[in-house]
Design a protein around this nucleic acid. Structure first.
Length: 560
DNA sequence: CCATGCGGGAAGG
DNA sequence: CCTTCCCGCATGG
């Protein structure tokens, strides 16, 4: 494994890239920077991108829970930029083994650094989770932004949450936050069992839903079908969500191993020179819990042949101090899904349900979005929380502004192998994949001149020379093939993307599960409820209430 | 205990 | 002076 690091640069040193902004097909956001005094009024929203990478700008609905939490798959910590209106966070990198060992399943160690400084210090120096390794955990710092950590910026307006990322992570992804939190909760053997039950419970319910929605979907075959697409990379990028983890309970996977499964048809290019993309490596510590996965119907009833007697799990399965010393993955294996499952031909419904709120969220991508709105209902209760209020800044008068399509879309480390759109390849000029056919709107707006910080945006990983790329994760030799595959998949991806609906949050989903378990001693789903859910998913009579934010197309922000 | 956000202050250009 | 990062503190889950 080779991890490319960017050269260290002083804070003020420019690392400007050869920007080539190409208009993209997605987003339709127009041209804005997080530091602009006024940001455009947005009528098209992005789905949440947990693993946004590269220089990208996204706009989320103001009721997007993940956006409201400023969450990210990357371990991001708050950084003071002395601007109360724009929250800045910087990447903490990833916890790796000092020996860069390989786990028994062939994967690498990349844990999630704690956000809390104190907790992070405690993490460092701990024994490598690989028992066969004498290494210690150490922080692999992020240097993806001109030698400094990648930064994320969050800015709230009444109508939207603006997100901007600067820099490209030069390290593997850490494990998902949910995984990290789950492991942290494993303070004792007893709690390990609790987790196992929880995951199995989620698996069971989710599978029940899927099986009722589509009887043709069978367990352990349709891995990768997603019931949740609040991370738009589900549809476009092929991330953790559609890796198709096996559905076996934690600690007791009985599936065939990945290498032997005939369904392993991932088309990620071999890239020995790069660190392995997450698709291939993060099934040990970084896997997502079962909520985003396919659910075998056999798991619906825990007493069936594929169920597990958790009482048989010894209470001393893990000693508390051995949480980092697992010999086997919690859920060691997954299989890659057929393209059909990934690209939506057999997967996600066109609309999705927020299991937590029961509300159908539909990404309305038309101007009517605002025209049909009614005052007062767009911001949900949560959005009235104090955490957001400070971001609700005064609006500036309408300012006509040239809008282009969103020149950036969420990217993750998978983009080179399974990009979702043409636009995914546009890296704000860092990465030029196709010849630019549009005028650089940034330049039209004197963007480069008026945004000094953005002038520093560069990629030390990527350089564009005569249309060829070098450095970084990106392997140009693999790219053409991957891009062609991407284009093939894109057609089906795109249709479902248009109707993409934002969905639930983990916590809501967990609550949902708890409710069901309370009412059903077994994990059992009320059929009527499912019909109701299904109706609300597929029904045509959405009731999408939206505020009328008429007359204000831009929101100003005042730096203090 | 830890994630998260705020804000003072230092460092460097 | 401006920008950015570091660090401590407060708060809440």
């Amino acid at each position: 494994m080779v991890i490319l690091h960017t050269p260290s640069l002083s804070p003020g040193m420019s690392c400007r890239a050869n920007y080539t902004i190409t208009a993209t097909s997605g987003g339709g956001h127009g041209d804005w920077d997080i530091n602009d005094s006024a940001v455009p009024r947005i009528h098209e929203f992005d789905t949440f991108s947990e693993w946004a990478d590269g220089h990208c700008r996204l706009v989320y609905r103001s009721d997007n829970e993940e956006a409201k939490r400023h969450s990210s798959g990357w371990a991001m910590r708050n950084t003071n930029n002395h601007n109360v209106h724009i929250l800045k966070k910087s990447c903490l990198g990833v916890l790796v083994c000092s020996s860069r060992c390989t786990l028994p399943n062939g994967e690498k160690v990349h844990l999630r650094p704690a956000i809390c400084d104190k907790a992070r210090k405690k993490q460092q120096g701990k024994p490598c989770p690989n028992r066969q390794c004498n290494g210690r955990l150490e922080i692999l710092p992020c240097r993806g932004h001109c030698g400094y950590p990648v930064t994320h910026f969050w800015r709230h307006t009444e109508q939207a949450i603006f997100f901007q990322a600067k820099g490209m992570h030069d390290h593997p992804r850490p494990e998902a936050k949910s995984t990290s939190e789950a492991r942290r909760s494993l303070g004792s053997g007893r709690r390990v069992r609790g987790l196992a039950v929880l995951l199995a419970k989620e698996t069971a319910l989710g599978n029940k839903i899927m099986s009722l929605r589509d009887p043709n979907k069978r367990p352990c075959k349709g891995l990768g079908q997603t019931t949740r697409t609040s991370d738009n990379t589900n549809l476009s990028m092929g991330t953790n969500q559609d890796k198709g983890y096996c559905s076996c309970p934690p600690f007791e996977c009985i599936c065939s191993y990945q290498s032997t499964l005939p369904t392993q048809t991932h088309n990620y290019p071999p890239s020995p020179q790069m660190y392995q993309p997450q698709h291939q490596v993060d099934n040990y510590w970084t896997q997502e819990p079962a909520h985003a996965q396919a659910y075998p119907s056999e798991m619906v009833n825990l007493e069936t042949s594929c169920s597990y007697d958790f009482n048989s799990i010894p209470a001393d399965l893990f000693q508390p101090e051995e949480i980092f010393q697992l010999d086997q993955p919690i859920k060691p294996d997954y299989v890659y899904v057929q393209d059909g499952a990934r690209n939506g031909t057999s997967g996600s419904p066109p609309t999705l349900l927020d299991l937590g709120s029961g509300i159908i969220h539909k990404e309305l991508k038309t101007e009517d979005y605002w025209g049909q709105a009614s005052v007062g209902s767009f911001l949900n209760d949560d959005s009235n929380a104090s955490s957001n209020s400070k971001f609700n800044i005064s609006q500036s008068p309408d300012v006509p502004k040239v809008l282009n399509n969103n020149p950036t879309i969420p990217l993750d480390q998978t983009f080179y192998s399974n990009p979702a759109k043409n636009s995914a390849l546009d890296y704000n000029g860092v990465l030029q994949v196709k010849p630019s056919v549009s005028t650089n709107l940034y330049n039209q707006n004197n963007f480069m001149d008026t945004q000094p910080e953005f002038n520093n945006e560069n990629s030390q990983q990527f350089t564009v020379n005569n249309g060829k790329l070098s450095g970084g994760y990106f392997n140009p030799e693999n790219f053409n093939q991957s891009y062609q595959e991407y284009e093939t998949n894109q057609k089906t991806c795109k249709s479902s993307f248009q109707e993409y609906v934002d969905v639930t949050q983990y916590s809501d989903y967990t609550n949902f599960l708890n409710v069901y378990e309370t009412n059903n001693k077994q994990v059992y789903v009320n059929e009527n409820m499912l019909k109701e859910l299904d109706f609300r998913i597929s029904g045509s009579d959405f009731n999408v209430s939206l505020d009328d934010y008429s007359g204000q197309n831009f929101h100003s922000v005042a730096n203090h």
